[in-house]
């Protein structure tokens, strides 16, 4: 059966049919948008925690580190209760839409981006601090400089976040509903095919997903290695 799956995966990729194409595109859209939003929030948050001393800072760091392991279904349940009609944001009508899936994935990815960028920025700050103070930089002014100079590490962190977003199924299943043609993504399609006992197809979809994620990672790796070698 497993030999079969590679054949299935190959034929899925070769005869990319409309519904699979839609599923792949939606998967990428949802996860990329989620990672982007999480980056816009998480990197400044991580840098801020690295830069500023405030009461409860230790608690924030512990919480961010712990939330990196937040089970996707828990995030999904939380977002479901939030977006459900009976919930506080029910009026928005976002439940069972790609938007809901983005929100759930942002919650999953944000702690990873914030916690890991906090570490990296703190490390860099140790190296730069005296020069920054000498230049008369405020902490707010240090933030963009540190984030830009940590860009290669941040790219790796971004990929870790994308990996988590594209691989999880619990949250998108719960808040997306796995609706055919609307909220079905790679992982929920895999769950569905598995539950139909169509294991070769499920595994084939898994291989397609893996191939995509690997292609994205390889591209990012090559780009950052080239740039890194250039930057020293």
């Amino acid at each position: 059966m497993e030999e079969n799956a590679f054949y299935v995966a190959l034929s899925l990729l070769v005869n990319l049919d409309a519904s699979l194409y839609q599923i792949v595109v939606l998967s990428l859209q949802v996860s990329l948008v989620a990672v982007l939003i999480a980056a816009l929030l998480g990197f400044p948050l991580g840098a801020a925690v690295a830069l500023w001393q405030f009461p409860g800072r230790g608690g924030v760091i512990v919480a961010l580190n712990a939330l990196m392991g937040l089970p996707p279904v828990v995030a999904g349940l939380g977002v479901y209760l939030l977006l459900s009609r009976a919930g506080p944001l029910g009026e928005l009508g976002l439940l069972f839409t790609p938007g809901a899936m983005v929100i759930a994935q942002v919650i999953l990815v944000l702690p990873i981006l914030a916690a890991l960028s906090r570490q990296k920025v703190e490390e860099l700050l140790g190296e730069y601090r005296e020069q920054f103070v000498s230049l008369g930089m405020s902490k707010a002014r240090m933030m963009p400089t540190l984030l830009w100079d940590a860009r290669f590490a941040l790219l790796t962190i971004l990929l870790a976040g994308f990996g988590r977003a594209s691989a999880e199924v619990g949250a998108v299943m719960m808040v997306g509903g796995n609706i055919d043609g609307v909220t079905r993504v790679m992982t929920t399609a895999i769950v569905l095919e598995t539950s139909k006992g169509a294991l070769p197809l499920a595994l084939g979809l898994g291989i397609v997903l893996l191939t995509l994620v690997m292609a994205i990672n390889a591209t990012a790796y090559i780009l950052s290695e080239t740039a890194k070698r250039r930057m020293g």
Partner: peptide, 27 residues
């Protein structure tokens, strides 16, 4: 207005020119 040069120069992970324009921007 003051500046300081350290034993181990602290340089940003950017081009030589960008290191200078950054310092000017900050000021």
């Amino acid at each position: 207005r003051q500046a300081m040069v350290f034993q181990t120069p602290v340089l940003l992970r950017r081009s030589a020119l960008a290191n200078l324009t950054h310092a000017l921007a900050v000021n």
